[in-house]
Amino acid sequence: MTTEAKSLPTPIPARPRRRGGRVRRQQKRAAWLFMLPSIAVLGVFVVYPMSQALYLSFTRYDVLNPAVWLGLKNYTDLPGDPAFTNALANTLYYAAVTTPLSVGLALALAVMLNQRIPWRALGRTAVFLPVVLGLAIVAIAWSFLLDPDIGLLSYWLGNIGLTSNQGWLRDPNLAMPAVMLVGIWKNVGFYMVIYLAGLQSIPKDLYEAARIDGAKGWQAFRHLTWPLLANQTMLVTILCATATLQAFDQIYVMTRGGPYFKTETLVMLIYRQGFSEFRFGYAAAISWVLVLLILILSLGQLVYFRRRAVTY
């Protein structure tokens, strides 16, 4: 390194802040420079592909031949396509079931594992462990567990009288609950950790004050813990809803969208339209519908929870 040593801008509080001053401009520039690598990566791998997809969604494109401009046709075709309405319904069903269950379970586990109970560390680790594993990989393990002939879980369930002739993944009524179960199990640990952090940032003296007022157990949870966790609930709910709307991995591995498209979500449909039917323009149109769906839902949740945000 050379010794041409002009110093870097130092952190904010060290100097008096002046509006529009030279220091501020320098800081701004430094901030942009710090962000540059991330912006470059995002631009190349997210923004550019998204804009390309937006363009493709107005075309007919099979990758092998040049795109043909179709205008809005891909979008106007969507409502009349049973494959799309089926996938949309499946996606909303998946999200509507797994989001509240994941959030509720994460909260229950966090409250439980925040107390002084034996094996607490082990419990936390066990719940969090699936988060660090690849979903596609654990989905293979789950497929084995649920196999009607060699599956351990199927065997146990069979012992208590719950037999399915076909096995969970091949039964049109049970396949969706099965992939939901895996989705919840995989991610609940992550949401639990967020809740745990929230629980530990609630000042202890609030609970002491509550106890003096006579609030115990459920009352303390209902009137103290739950409202003070509003920020975490907002974060977890939005993260979970956006993630579940994009459910793909375990479905691709465990059911491939079957039996007869009963578990085909929008992302599965995008994949099928693109890579097996070569309709990349149409697939891009579905992607953009999904983007808008997620955007609207997230904004809605944000507005709803903002009113309940707490500072303490």
């Binding site: 390194m1 050379t2 041409e4 040593a5 002009k6 110093s7 870097l8 430094a30 420079l33 710090f34 540059l36 690598p37 470059a40």
Partner: peptide, 16 residues
């Protein structure tokens, strides 16, 4: 070592 701003810019560009 402390980096000059120019060096720093070069590094950031290098990463990008």
């Amino acid at each position: 070592t402390r980096f000059s701003r120019r060096q720093f810019t070069a590094m950031a560009l290098g990463v990008a």
